[in-house]
């Protein structure tokens, strides 16, 4: 293994931890809004870190570009989906949890 492989490995593993955090939040958090927080933010960071780790291993500059494009698309979709689900829940009167 060369240095770049080590950096990749660290980024990929860190990404996996964020995905785990997203799922943990999804299972543990008390209402749909807080679960959306967890899923949206943690998974997007997880994917971002994985994309970074994979980009270091990619065969060409264009492939790196494609990876970044995919991440940007997921970010864009993630923001809209979170808003869509949250506003749908609010409109239908899904109560939000308070401590």
């Amino acid at each position: 293994m060369i240095l770049i492989d080590y950096i990749s490995t660290i980024l990929l593993l860190a990404g996996a931890i964020f995905f785990l955090a997203g799922t943990l939040g999804l299972l543990r958090f008390p209402d749909v809004y807080t679960r959306l927080h967890a899923l949206t933010k943690a998974d997007n960071v997880g994917l971002g870190l994985m994309v970074a780790g994979l980009a270091l291993q990619a065969e060409s500059l264009a492939a790196i570009g494609k990876l970044l494009l995919i991440w940007a698309l997921v970010l864009l979709a993630g923001g809209s989906v979170a808003h869509l689900v949250a506003s749908g829940a609010l409109k239908r009167g899904v109560p939000w949890w308070k401590r």
Binding site: I17, F18, A21, G22, L24, G25, R28, F29, P30, D31, Y33, T34, H37, A38, K41, A42, N44, V45, G46, G48, L75, W96, W97, K98, R99
Partner: peptide
């Protein structure tokens, strides 16, 4: 900020006492 957002929410999800105090 979005990286920090991920770290923040991950920290709260991992902690056993789940330190969240939501509001609208």
């Amino acid at each position: 900020r979005s990286l920090l957002g991920g770290v923040d929410v991950a920290r709260r999800a991992f902690q056993p006492n789940m330190p969240i105090n939501p509001d609208l």
